[in-house]
């Protein structure tokens, strides 16, 4: 492997890790606060991508500047979070917080099945591709390797901003503190007047927006196909499981490990590249069953 391919693999890995991290961040945030693993998270990612492609395609066809694609990504993500995430939490999840974990898993799985068909109904099975945003930012050359600014600089920057921003939000703002208080002890939080229902709704919508944003940001870099949501839920689960469920900073490291592992595998042994994330996850879990940064939940007896 010469320097050029090494750098290419490195850059691929960074941009891929950034995307996966953004999605995994939403998944782990929802889990951390609500103790629910949202299997439909992958669908929200896919719908975020589809929505972006449609919106950008439509607006650009009206003659707008390609740079407008960026605000439209944010609009798509918010639409996904509010129009899909909101009702899912409000109409469904709210009924099952006191049910066994298996039931909660089944409910989000059912939502996943429904949303997979919704995508097919709305957008069909033909692949979509819309790379205006990617082209708008141009390329950058590093050590003789030319790479897109979008993937090499923008995506990691967004991921980092979200990581730092979410940490700041949870630890320094009033709303963030309400969320962490509810996470620690829901009943105690309610007893001091926190509206736990609203906190959960807000958290779920935020998580869903992150999934949608991941899809929106991914859309210029890949073809949008049916099935991408199923791949993404398993992949982002691999990331959060490797990190330890609910570990926000850990998810960033796990995403980097998995992203790098996958992109280097593409250059070394392409057939197994898709397996690498899972192999990393299985290896980590064999040694640390709770994930890299998770701590075993000691049961009090």
């Amino acid at each position: 492997m010469n320097l050029t391919t090494f750098l290419l693999a490195l850059f691929d890995g960074v941009s891929y890790a950034a995307l996966v991290f953004i999605v995994a961040l939403g998944l782990t945030l929802i889990f951390g606060v609500m103790r629910i693993l949202n299997v439909a998270h992958g669908s929200l990612y896919a719908i975020g991508a589809y929505a972006t492609v449609s919106l950008v395609g439509w607006v650009l066809a009206l003659g707008a500047a390609p740079i407008l694609a960026f605000p439209l990504m944010i609009v798509s993500a918010i639409l996904v979070g509010v129009l899909i995430g909101g009702p899912v939490e409000y109409l469904l999840l709210r009924r099952i917080y006191d049910k066994p974990e298996v039931l909660q898993l089944l409910v989000t799985f059912a939502v996943f099945m429904i949303l997979e068909d919704v995508q097919r109904l709305v957008w069909g099975t033909q692949p979509y591709f819309e790379a205006q945003a990617l082209r708008a930012l141009g390329n950058v050359t590093v050590f003789g390797v030319t790479y897109t600014v979008y993937q090499l600089i923008l995506l990691p920057l967004v991921a980092l901003t979200l990581l730092v921003g979410l940490r700041f939000f949870l630890r320094r703002t009033v709303t963030g503190k309400l969320i962490t208080a509810t996470t620690e002890d829901r009943e105690a939080a309610q007893s001091i007047g926190i509206d736990a229902d609203r906190v959960f709704l807000l958290t779920f919508v935020m998580g869903a927006i992150l999934a949608g944003l991941g899809g929106a940001l991914a859309s210029p870099t890949t073809s949008i196909l049916p099935g991408m949501g199923a791949d993404m839920i398993v992949l982002s689960f691999a990331v959060v499981a490797t990190a330890g469920l609910g570990q926000i900073e850990g998810a960033a490291i796990a995403a980097l490990m998995i992203g790098m592992g996958r992109s280097f595998a593409i250059y070394i042994w392409p057939e197994v590249a898709v397996l690498v994330p899972y192999l990393i996850m299985v290896l980590v879990l064999l040694v640390r069953p709770e994930g890299l940064f998770g701590s075993p939940a000691a049961r009090k007896i």
């Binding site: 693993l37 298996v102 898993l105 791949d231 398993v234 689960f237 397996l275 899972y278 299985v282 879990l285």
Partner: peptide, 24 residues
């Protein structure tokens, strides 16, 4: 491997293994 886990992990790890085999 998976009998060490319950609930979410059990369900999702099984899914991951089936996806691995599907990819192969």
């Amino acid at each position: 491997f998976v009998v060490r886990y319950r609930g979410i992990f059990f369900g999702m790890l099984n899914l991951a293994f089936s996806m691995i085999f599907w990819s192969i």
